[in-house]
Amino acid sequence: MRPSLFQNKDELTPATVNTEAMDAPFRSPRVLQGADCARMPPVPTLPRWIARTLQPLPLAPLQLPLALALRSVVARHPYIFERLDVHAYKRFGLQPTDLPFGLVLAPHPKMPSLIAVRSLPAGLPIRIAGPLLGLIGLIDGSYDGDALFFSRDLVVEGDVEAVLALRNAIDDAGVDLVADTAALFGPLAPSGERLLGGALLQLKGAALATKREEAR
């Protein structure tokens, strides 16, 4: 048996063990013999000039496209919010850390809404923050939420139950942001998909170029 680090098993109670985690990070002696692995590279962030360019612009022109995009996603995935159960009546704050505005999602089954805000309102029960491409990757299934949390690319605060429910609902729905949004264009959807897909690729390219530059 592995020797216990406690002198007496009865000491494992909240009353006798100081369960305050360490103030300063440190590396403990490994209980299990593990090998350090290569860490996941951070999710690329958008170049700063994009945030600087968008900063002075009004948010009003964003609201209609956001509403239409959400409507299109829900129309193509009508059961997406079923997994949310009681959490469907909560408001989720989404903060792309490389953009000068946030989003508030209310996945109400009858009146879902997605609006842009200059900063997330205080008192929101849930706040999810990370680079825009990470948040998009969570939606389209290219990133694993837990892995982004482990790598500290994703910050979650507030109602963790609701966050998990939202993550699982979106992951099961198989949302394709580009295709779903392009569906808004009706018969021109294929062209819209090319356009939006191209724009997303441009963003990814710019973010990767920034990352390479920062690495130099």
């Binding site: 680090l5 369960t19 403990s28 500290r152």
Partner: peptide, 27 residues
């Protein structure tokens, strides 16, 4: 508590960092 940039983990008790009279760390 995870310092800036330190990989995070699930908040399961068995994987917590604790202080005891015998030392600190992942018990």
């Amino acid at each position: 508590r995870f310092a800036k940039g330190e990989p995070a983990a699930y908040p399961t008790l068995c994987k917590g960092r604790f202080k005891t009279s015998l030392g600190s760390g992942y018990l």
